[in-house]
Amino acid sequence: MRDVHAREFLQDVGLPVDHLLFASAEPETRIVESDGIKRNLLKIGEGGDYEEFCVDIESGEIVSLSTSDSSIWHVNDSPVMFQRCLEEFMARFPYGGEGLDLAEREALADELGRALIGIDATALRDDPGFWCGLLGDVAIGDYSEE
């Protein structure tokens, strides 16, 4: 990996092995063409059925790769920022209880969004994208206490 800071963080600190939003995986190289540009990625984890988390080998940014259509979405500027955003998500979890209405759930999503931007100004850069989609999920009650 050419980005030294990303490599050092992943080697020395690492990301969570098992998280509600992220499951670590054996590193695998991915070469994906996006908008006419070939991107060299290193798979580091999985999110959902068709979602892989990867580090861009050149920039060190974390991206979400859809294995169904090879679309790539920015997640965070670096593995450090990704870890901090994952921690912020869990620090606030669960996002309300059964009695919350839509406006209250949307307020919780907005608060989380502001916190994510405070950690990494690029976190909500892609819409739709990983964090933007997650905020929508929070707003509809997917991460509430049931």
Score class of each variant (00 low, 15 high):
25 A>Q: 09
55 V>E: 06
31 I>M: 11
37 I>M: 09
32 V>L: 12
62 I>D: 04
28 E>A: 14
34 S>W: 11
77 D>T: 14
76 N>F: 06
36 G>E: 13
28 E>I: 14
68 S>F: 08
48 G>P: 09
63 V>D: 03
44 I>C: 07
75 V>A: 10
22 F>R: 00
75 V>E: 03
54 C>N: 01
46 E>D: 14
74 H>Q: 12
50 Y>W: 04
76 N>M: 14
30 R>G: 03
49 D>H: 10
80 V>C: 04
85 C>V: 12
59 S>D: 10
85 C>W: 01
84 R>V: 15
48 G>I: 03
93 F>H: 04
30 R>W: 03
44 I>E: 02
40 N>P: 11
25 A>S: 12
57 I>R: 01
47 G>M: 05
89 F>Q: 02
24 S>Q: 10
32 V>I: 12
58 E>F: 08
59 S>I: 08
28 E>P: 04
50 Y>M: 10
77 D>H: 06
49 D>P: 15
45 G>W: 00
84 R>A: 10
62 I>S: 01
25 A>I: 08
31 I>L: 12
73 W>K: 03
34 S>F: 08
79 P>T: 02
65 L>Y: 01
23 A>W: 01
94 P>A: 08
38 K>C: 14
47 G>A: 13
68 S>H: 07
37 I>C: 12
26 E>Q: 04
57 I>Y: 02
73 W>Y: 11
73 W>L: 15
43 K>H: 03
85 C>G: 08
83 Q>S: 14
76 N>R: 00
65 L>K: 00
45 G>C: 02
84 R>N: 13
74 H>V: 08
69 D>H: 07
76 N>L: 15
23 A>G: 09
46 E>S: 11
37 I>E: 13
90 M>R: 02
83 Q>K: 09
51 E>G: 07
40 N>Q: 13
78 S>R: 01
71 S>V: 09
51 E>S: 10
52 E>M: 13
50 Y>H: 06
62 I>H: 02
88 E>T: 05
28 E>W: 05
85 C>D: 06
66 S>P: 15
65 L>I: 08
91 A>N: 11
60 G>T: 02
33 E>D: 11
26 E>M: 03
72 I>F: 02
33 E>F: 08
94 P>H: 01
56 D>M: 07
